[in-house]
Design a protein around this nucleic acid. Structure first.
Lengths: 111, 111
DNA sequence: CCCTTCCATATCCGAATGGTTATATAACCG
DNA sequence: CGGTTATATAACCATTCGGATATGGAAGGG
């Protein structure tokens, strides 16, 4: 859905959240582990995690007192698919062909 | 740069702006052409275009009184490269291997 | 020249965002 | 049970965002 893409892109727009995703791509991690690299408070991290979770990009585990987060790689597909869609439209465009031919013509017909 | 990714993802987080990009993927278009499908005012469209431009995703043409916008496809690469990066980290993760083996073990060793 | 079309810019507004501090809950450690 | 650790939640605050209205300027058409 459109809304799902909204949430994913919005989630990815923050550098802290992207860093968290990169960290989780390497391995699962607890909230306090995820917090370490950043100069912000724990509640701020929890908020970021909630947003990533809401976008479906991560999942919450259950391990005694810690709740390890897990990257949901599959969720990235929706986003990359959107990019492929854009490129496909671009490639299929007749105007794009016009553009190319015009450019070529201009090259030859140096007035 | 990190900031460049911030701008791109933030720009892509809005459905109106994504729709504009899809439209521009088919062919260049003027502001008024771009406005047509949307129930919002022209200044709102201009704002969206400024954001897309600031993110490097589109460019501004100069044609008499109209200023046609143009999709900058190359700019998408930065974003898709980031996704590839995430996937690479994921694929290379030793923990991921552990995860797989553990799952396999659990399958076999059904106690 | 006037009028219309196309677009940008300024200002304002309500809602969302990213951060903080303070506090609650739940599990583990003695 | 008391204290500590790990995390969530609430309340607050400044900033940003997406939109509207109002206005200005530049090009074209009569």
């Amino acid at each position: 859905m459109e809304e799902s893409l909204n949430l994913k892109f919005a989630a990815l727009a923050d550098p802290t959240r992207r860093a968290i995703l990169l960290r989780l791509a390497k391995s699962d991690a607890t909230v306090s582990q995820l917090q370490k690299p950043f100069p912000i408070t724990q509640p701020a991290i929890s908020k970021h995690l909630r947003i990533l979770e809401g976008a479906g990009l991560i999942e919450r585990g259950q391990a005694a007192q810690s709740r390890p987060r897990h990257l949901n790689v599959i969720a990235l597909n929706e986003v990359t698919t959107w990019f492929e869609h854009v490129r496909t439209l671009w490639d299929d465009s007749f105007d794009r062909l016009d553009e190319f031919l015009t450019a070529t013509n201009n090259d030859k017909g140096g007035d």
